[in-house]
């Protein structure tokens, strides 16, 4: 018997000694009873309820998406934006109902003017079957310039509130500027 065979047999013996008793533990038996066990009258009912809930959610999501405006990626223009012409706004946090001490009343928000989305250069356009999400964010204008957007800015520290169109891969495809605040107003009202 070679040295390798001897060592193999020793390892086999050690492994057999370390093998735990072959009785399924309580967690495994509970899993079995939950999945395959008989006498589970609630299982079918729960499955039916879950199916109804999933179907309801799917229908509502489908309807929401069907009514959402679809922005064709090919129609996204890339105009040069004069940032100075936009109305500067100070970015202040929304007053919380707790801080004001009374329940905040919802005022009807006037619809914002629909500015066009600007495509970020060198990004692949969305395919017709791809969905995009629009996320509103406060971002520095320098980041937009670094991304390749043709912006003319006098204040390099300015920030913009913008809608970002994000593709299914998580990359931003286009940007729509909502408002711009200069660096002074942002620093005083972070």
């Amino acid at each position: 018997m070679t040295k390798l065979e001897q060592a193999m047999r020793q390892l086999q013996a050690e492994a057999r000694a370390m093998t735990p008793p072959s009785e399924p533990n309580a967690a495994l038996l509970a899993e079995f009873a939950g999945v395959r066990g008989p006498g589970n009258p609630w299982k079918a009912q729960w499955l039916a309820v879950a199916a109804v809930v999933i179907a309801t959610i799917a229908v509502s999501v489908f309807r929401t998406r069907a009514h959402a405006p679809v922005i064709p990626p090919a129609a996204v223009p890339a105009p040069v934006v004069q940032v100075a012409a936009m109305q500067p706004t100070a970015m202040q946090p929304a007053p919380s109902p707790v801080a004001s001490g009374r329940k905040a009343r919802r005022k009807p928000v006037p619809p914002e003017p629909e500015a066009p989305f600007m495509q970020i250069p060198y990004t692949a356009p969305l395919a017709p079957w791809e969905h995009a999400e629009v996320v509103r964010a406060d971002i520095p204008l320098s980041a937009l310039i670094a991304a390749g957007l043709p912006l003319e800015v006098s204040d390099p520290g300015a920030r913009a509130r913008a809608d970002l169109m994000i593709g299914p891969d998580g990359r931003t495809r286009a940007v729509r500027l909502i408002s711009v605040s200069d660096s002074t107003s942002y620093r005083t009202n972070p």
């Binding site: 093998t19 009785e23 399924p24 395959r36």
Partner: peptide, 26 residues
């Protein structure tokens, strides 16, 4: 076991658990 017999599952476990454990151990 597929039909939900707990004893059958226990039998399968007893028969195959040691080899599964040892393979993972090695």
């Amino acid at each position: 076991f597929r039909n939900g017999d707990r004893e059958a599952f226990t039998g399968i476990y007893r028969e195959h658990h040691p080899s599964v454990f040892r393979f993972a151990l090695h």
